[in-house]
C-alpha cells in the first residue's frame, strides 16, 4: 500500500513585482503538476535546488497549504481536508522551525505534546522513556532548550515528532547547521527508525550524506517538476562517469599514461587516479596498473554523491535534459 500518493499536484502563487504604484502581479508556479507514489515503509530523499518546490510540496502533504489543483493522499487522507485527523499519524521536522519551547526543557515540551496528541499517561511514559533511551536524551532532558547545542536540540526535536508514534515522518532539511558528528547521529537515528519501526520517511536535504545514509530512493525536483526518480544506488551508478582508483606499490612504479585517466595524487609508492569509465574501462586500467609495478593494495571508490547531485543540478538546466531523465523513472 502507498503511504503517499500525488497526482498532478500544482501550487501557484500570485506575486507582486516591482515597487511603488506601478506594481504588477504575476503568477509563479511553485509545484507544477507533480505526481509520484511512496509505498509504506520506504525512505525517500526529495532533493532539488533552492526554490525547486520541495518545501511547498511537503507543506501540501502535511495539510499546511492548499494546492491550486491536483490530488494527494497521505495514509488515505486528503491532507488539506483532513488535517487534524492526519496530524495524529504524521510527524514533521522543519530544520528552520522548532516545536520545542525555547525557555523550557525538552521534558516539558514532551509533556505538553502528550496533551496535544491525547496520549494516555501510561502510553506516554513508555514512549517517552523509549525515546529518551534511543535518542540519548537523558543528559539534557531537563535543561532549558536555549542552553542546548544545535545537535542536542535536533535530537530532541525529532524525538518530539515521534512521540505520538507517527507512520510517516517528513523531514525538511533536518541537518541544517549541524556539525559532522551531530549529522551522523541524526541520520543513524532516522535510518534505524525507518528500518525497525517501518516508518515512511520523506526527507529534503542539500546534504548528500543525509541522502546516502537515510534514503533508498531519490526524487529530484526542479522548477516544480520531478526530473529524476530512481534508487540512490542506481543514481550513483548512472551519473557516475568516473571511479577513483587508489593503488599502493611494493616498489616505485613506472609512469602510467592511459587516455581517460588522471593522476589526482601521487607519491613514491602510492597514487590516486580518477578514471573516466566512458573513455577507459576499469579492468583495462587495473591491468595497466599491475604492469606498472608490484601492487600491494588497490581500492576502487565511487565519487562522492555531492558531485553527482551537483552534476544533476547543472544538467537540469540543459534543454534536452528533462526528456532524458523522465524516461529513466
Amino acid at each position: 500500500m502507498n503511504a503517499i500518493e500525488l497526482h498532478k499536484l500544482r501550487k501557484t502563487y500570485t506575486v507582486k513585482q516591482g515597487s511603488g504604484f506601478g506594481r504588477k502581479t504575476a503568477e509563479v508556479v511553485a509545484v507544477d503538476d507533480i505526481s509520484f507514489e511512496i509505498p509504506e515503509g520506504q525512505s525517500v530523499a526529495f532533493i532539488g535546488p533552492n526554490g525547486a518546490g520541495k518545501s511547498t510540496t511537503i507543506k501540501m502533504l502535511t495539510g499546511i497549504l492548499h494546492p491550486t489543483s491536483g490530488e494527494a493522499s497521505v495514509l488515505g487522507l486528503v491532507p488539506w481536508q483532513d488535517r487534524s485527523k492526519l496530524a495524529y499519524q504524521i510527524g514533521a521536522v522543519f530544520g528552520q522551525r522548532s516545536q520545542l519551547w525555547y525557555h523550557l526543557p525538552p521534558s516539558d515540551t514532551f509533556e505538553l505534546l502528550a496533551r496535544v496528541y491525547n496520549i494516555g499517561k501510561n502510553d506516554y511514559r513508555k514512549r517517552r522513556d523509549m525515546l529518551i533511551e534511543r535518542f540519548g536524551l537523558a543528559e539534557f532532558l531537563n535543561t532549558a532548550v536555549r542552553k542546548l547545542s544545535l545537535g542536542q536540540r535536533m535530537r530532541a526535536e525529532i524525538a518530539a515528532s515521534l512521540l505520538h508514534n507517527p507512520k510517516v515522518l517528513f523531514l525538511d532539511e533536518p541537518t541544517i547547521g549541524l556539525d559532522v558528528v551531530a549529522c551522523q547521529e541524526l541520520r543513524d537515528l532516522v535510518s534505524e527508525w525507518n528500518r525497525q519501526e517501518g516508518l515512511t520517511v520523506l526527507l529534503t536535504s542539500h546534504d548528500a550524506g543525509d541522502i546516502e545514509a537515510v534514503a533508498k530512493r531519490v526524487l529530484v525536483i526542479n522548477y516544480g517538476r520531478v526530473v529524476l526518480d530512481d534508487r540512490v544506488v542506481t543514481v550513483r551508478r548512472r551519473y557516475m562517469g568516473s571511479k577513483i582508483l587508489g593503488v599502493k606499490f611494493h616498489e616505485i612504479p613506472r609512469e602510467i599514461r592511459i587516455p581517460g585517466v588522471t593522476v589526482l595524487k601521487a607519491s613514491s609508492y602510492a597514487m590516486k587516479l580518477e578514471v573516466n569509465t566512458e573513455v577507459a574501462s576499469i579492468d583495462r586500467v587495473i591491468h595497466k596498473v599491475i604492469q606498472a609495478g608490484p601492487v600491494a593494495d588497490i581500492t576502487i571508490e565511487d565519487p562522492p554523491l555531492e558531485e553527482i547531485i551537483a552534476h544533476i543540478y547543472s544538467r537540469v538546466n540543459e534543454p534536452d535534459y528533462e526528456e532524458e531523465v523522465i524516461g529513466l523513472s
Binding site: T56, I64, L65, S98, Y102, H103, V145
Partner: peptide
C-alpha cells in the same frame, strides 16, 4: 486560511 501562503523564516516557540 485557504489563502495562507506559509513562509521560511526561522522560528522558536515559548
Amino acid at each position: 486560511l485557504s489563502r495562507y501562503e506559509s513562509g521560511s523564516l526561522m522560528e522558536m516557540r515559548g
